[in-house]
Computed example of a mutant assay.
Amino acid sequence: MKKQRPPGLIAIVAYKAFVASLLTVTSIALLFALKNHKILENFSESYLLETKLKIIELLLDKFLIVKPKTLLFSGLAAGFYAGLTAVEALGLWYQKGWATILVLVLVGISIPPEIYELFQGLTLLKLAVFIANLAVLWYLLHHLPKHGKAD
Protein backbone atom coordinates (compact mmCIF):
# COMPACT_ATOMS: atom_id res chain seq x y z
CA MET A 1 0.00 0.00 0.00
CA LYS A 2 1.38 3.34 -1.07
CA LYS A 3 1.76 6.01 1.62
CA GLN A 4 -0.36 9.13 1.00
CA ARG A 5 1.51 12.44 1.12
CA PRO A 6 -0.07 15.17 3.26
CA PRO A 7 -1.40 18.22 1.35
CA GLY A 8 0.92 20.54 3.30
CA LEU A 9 3.94 18.54 2.20
CA ILE A 10 2.76 18.55 -1.41
CA ALA A 11 2.36 22.34 -1.23
CA ILE A 12 5.91 22.75 0.13
CA VAL A 13 7.34 20.49 -2.58
CA ALA A 14 5.47 22.49 -5.26
CA TYR A 15 6.76 25.77 -3.75
CA LYS A 16 10.34 24.46 -3.65
CA ALA A 17 10.09 23.16 -7.23
CA PHE A 18 8.77 26.55 -8.37
CA VAL A 19 11.62 28.36 -6.59
CA ALA A 20 14.18 25.95 -8.08
CA SER A 21 12.75 26.65 -11.55
CA LEU A 22 12.92 30.42 -11.07
CA LEU A 23 16.49 30.19 -9.78
CA THR A 24 17.48 28.04 -12.75
CA VAL A 25 16.05 30.55 -15.22
CA THR A 26 17.76 33.40 -13.32
CA SER A 27 21.09 31.59 -13.37
CA ILE A 28 20.86 30.89 -17.10
CA ALA A 29 19.85 34.50 -17.82
CA LEU A 30 22.73 35.91 -15.77
CA LEU A 31 25.30 33.62 -17.36
CA PHE A 32 23.89 34.33 -20.83
CA ALA A 33 24.10 38.07 -20.11
CA LEU A 34 27.70 37.64 -18.98
CA LYS A 35 28.58 35.84 -22.20
CA ASN A 36 26.97 38.62 -24.24
CA HIS A 37 27.88 41.63 -22.08
CA LYS A 38 29.92 43.31 -24.82
CA ILE A 39 27.20 42.74 -27.42
CA LEU A 40 24.66 44.31 -25.06
CA GLU A 41 26.99 47.30 -24.52
CA ASN A 42 27.26 47.83 -28.26
CA PHE A 43 23.52 47.42 -28.72
CA SER A 44 22.81 49.98 -25.99
CA GLU A 45 24.88 52.52 -27.93
CA SER A 46 23.27 51.72 -31.28
CA TYR A 47 21.17 54.08 -33.34
CA LEU A 48 18.10 51.85 -32.90
CA LEU A 49 17.69 53.01 -29.33
CA GLU A 50 18.20 56.72 -30.02
CA THR A 51 14.54 57.54 -30.50
CA LYS A 52 12.69 54.27 -29.92
CA LEU A 53 12.31 51.66 -27.26
CA LYS A 54 13.08 53.89 -24.25
CA ILE A 55 12.13 51.12 -21.84
CA ILE A 56 14.74 48.79 -23.36
CA GLU A 57 17.33 51.53 -23.22
CA LEU A 58 16.51 52.18 -19.57
CA LEU A 59 16.74 48.47 -18.70
CA LEU A 60 20.02 48.06 -20.56
CA ASP A 61 21.51 51.08 -18.80
CA LYS A 62 20.59 49.58 -15.42
CA PHE A 63 21.85 46.16 -16.42
CA LEU A 64 25.17 47.33 -17.86
CA ILE A 65 26.14 48.94 -14.55
CA VAL A 66 26.65 45.42 -13.20
CA LYS A 67 30.23 44.22 -13.56
CA PRO A 68 30.93 40.95 -15.38
CA LYS A 69 32.46 39.39 -12.23
CA THR A 70 29.26 40.16 -10.35
CA LEU A 71 27.21 38.54 -13.12
CA LEU A 72 29.40 35.44 -13.00
CA PHE A 73 29.19 35.12 -9.22
CA SER A 74 25.44 35.78 -9.19
CA GLY A 75 24.80 33.31 -12.01
CA LEU A 76 26.81 30.56 -10.35
CA ALA A 77 25.29 31.24 -6.92
CA ALA A 78 21.76 31.15 -8.37
CA GLY A 79 22.56 27.89 -10.15
CA PHE A 80 23.98 26.32 -6.99
CA TYR A 81 20.98 27.40 -4.93
CA ALA A 82 18.62 26.12 -7.66
CA GLY A 83 20.25 22.70 -7.41
CA LEU A 84 20.07 22.73 -3.62
CA THR A 85 16.40 23.74 -3.72
CA ALA A 86 15.65 20.95 -6.20
CA VAL A 87 17.37 18.45 -3.87
CA GLU A 88 15.21 19.77 -1.00
CA ALA A 89 12.06 19.28 -3.08
CA LEU A 90 12.99 15.74 -4.11
CA GLY A 91 13.99 14.79 -0.58
CA LEU A 92 10.72 16.11 0.80
CA TRP A 93 8.76 14.34 -1.93
CA TYR A 94 10.32 11.03 -0.90
CA GLN A 95 9.81 12.05 2.77
CA LYS A 96 13.45 11.78 3.77
CA GLY A 97 14.34 12.97 7.25
CA TRP A 98 17.52 14.69 6.05
CA ALA A 99 15.47 16.78 3.62
CA THR A 100 13.20 18.04 6.38
CA ILE A 101 16.22 19.05 8.45
CA LEU A 102 17.88 20.67 5.41
CA VAL A 103 14.78 22.73 4.64
CA LEU A 104 14.39 23.75 8.28
CA VAL A 105 18.01 24.93 8.44
CA LEU A 106 17.98 26.79 5.12
CA VAL A 107 14.60 28.42 5.66
CA GLY A 108 15.54 29.26 9.25
CA ILE A 109 18.74 30.94 8.06
CA SER A 110 16.82 32.98 5.49
CA ILE A 111 14.28 34.46 7.94
CA PRO A 112 16.53 37.17 9.54
CA PRO A 113 17.70 38.60 6.18
CA GLU A 114 14.09 38.58 4.95
CA ILE A 115 13.02 40.57 8.03
CA TYR A 116 15.85 43.04 7.36
CA GLU A 117 14.74 43.36 3.72
CA LEU A 118 11.15 44.00 4.79
CA PHE A 119 12.33 46.88 6.98
CA GLN A 120 14.41 48.28 4.10
CA GLY A 121 11.37 48.49 1.87
CA LEU A 122 8.12 46.60 2.05
CA THR A 123 6.92 45.13 -1.23
CA LEU A 124 4.21 42.59 -1.92
CA LEU A 125 6.74 40.07 -3.28
CA LYS A 126 9.04 40.33 -0.24
CA LEU A 127 6.08 39.94 2.08
CA ALA A 128 4.72 36.94 0.14
CA VAL A 129 8.09 35.15 0.21
CA PHE A 130 8.49 35.89 3.93
CA ILE A 131 5.01 34.55 4.73
CA ALA A 132 5.56 31.47 2.55
CA ASN A 133 8.86 30.71 4.29
CA LEU A 134 7.29 31.19 7.73
CA ALA A 135 4.51 28.79 6.72
CA VAL A 136 7.06 26.20 5.53
CA LEU A 137 9.02 26.56 8.77
CA TRP A 138 5.89 26.29 10.94
CA TYR A 139 4.53 23.28 9.03
CA LEU A 140 7.76 21.30 9.13
CA LEU A 141 8.39 22.08 12.80
CA HIS A 142 4.90 20.90 13.73
CA HIS A 143 5.00 17.80 11.54
CA LEU A 144 8.67 16.83 11.95
CA PRO A 145 8.07 13.43 13.59
CA LYS A 146 5.44 12.50 10.99
CA HIS A 147 7.65 13.18 7.97
CA GLY A 148 10.81 11.44 7.08
CA LYS A 149 11.99 8.02 7.89
CA ALA A 150 15.23 7.37 9.67
CA ASP A 151 17.81 7.52 6.91
Rank of each mutant, 00 (worst) to 15 (best):
residue 2 K to Y: 06
residue 2 K to W: 08
residue 3 K to Q: 14
residue 3 K to S: 12
residue 3 K to T: 14
residue 5 R to W: 00
residue 5 R to K: 13
residue 6 P to S: 12
residue 7 P to M: 04
residue 9 L to S: 03
residue 9 L to P: 02
residue 11 A to I: 01
residue 12 I to C: 03
residue 15 Y to H: 05
residue 20 A to M: 04
residue 20 A to C: 03
residue 20 A to F: 04
residue 28 I to D: 02
residue 29 A to W: 09
residue 30 L to E: 15
residue 31 L to M: 14
residue 31 L to A: 10
residue 32 F to D: 11
residue 36 N to D: 09
residue 38 K to E: 15
residue 38 K to W: 07
residue 39 I to Y: 10
residue 40 L to Y: 14
residue 41 E to V: 13
residue 41 E to C: 11
residue 42 N to F: 12
residue 45 E to F: 08
residue 51 T to Y: 09
residue 51 T to R: 08
residue 52 K to D: 13
residue 54 K to V: 09
residue 54 K to T: 10
residue 59 L to K: 06
residue 60 L to Y: 05
residue 60 L to R: 02
residue 61 D to H: 13
residue 61 D to F: 08
residue 63 F to W: 11
residue 63 F to H: 08
residue 64 L to Q: 07
residue 65 I to V: 15
residue 65 I to N: 04
residue 68 P to G: 06
residue 70 T to H: 13
residue 70 T to C: 01
residue 70 T to N: 10
residue 71 L to F: 15
residue 72 L to D: 02
residue 74 S to Y: 04
residue 74 S to G: 10
residue 75 G to W: 04
residue 77 A to I: 14
residue 78 A to H: 06
residue 79 G to P: 09
residue 80 F to N: 00
residue 82 A to S: 15
residue 83 G to F: 11
residue 85 T to V: 10
residue 89 A to P: 06
residue 89 A to Y: 03
residue 90 L to N: 07
residue 90 L to R: 11
residue 93 W to G: 01
residue 93 W to S: 11
residue 95 Q to W: 02
residue 96 K to N: 13
residue 97 G to P: 00
residue 98 W to H: 03
residue 100 T to M: 09
residue 102 L to F: 14
residue 103 V to W: 00
residue 106 L to C: 02
residue 106 L to F: 09
residue 106 L to I: 05
residue 108 G to H: 05
residue 110 S to H: 10
residue 110 S to A: 15
residue 111 I to C: 04
residue 112 P to F: 05
residue 113 P to Q: 06
residue 113 P to Y: 08
residue 115 I to C: 06
residue 116 Y to C: 04
residue 116 Y to F: 15
residue 117 E to H: 07
residue 118 L to H: 08
residue 118 L to S: 07
residue 119 F to I: 13
residue 119 F to C: 07
residue 120 Q to T: 07
residue 120 Q to R: 11
residue 125 L to H: 07
residue 127 L to E: 05
residue 127 L to C: 03
residue 128 A to E: 08
residue 130 F to V: 09
residue 133 N to G: 02
residue 134 L to N: 08
residue 135 A to H: 02
residue 136 V to M: 11
residue 136 V to P: 01
residue 136 V to W: 01
residue 138 W to G: 01
residue 138 W to S: 05
residue 138 W to H: 07
residue 138 W to R: 10
residue 139 Y to H: 05
residue 140 L to Y: 05
residue 140 L to V: 12
residue 141 L to N: 07
residue 141 L to H: 01
residue 141 L to T: 09
residue 142 H to C: 00
residue 145 P to M: 01
residue 145 P to S: 10
residue 147 H to T: 01
residue 149 K to A: 11
residue 150 A to T: 12
residue 151 D to C: 05
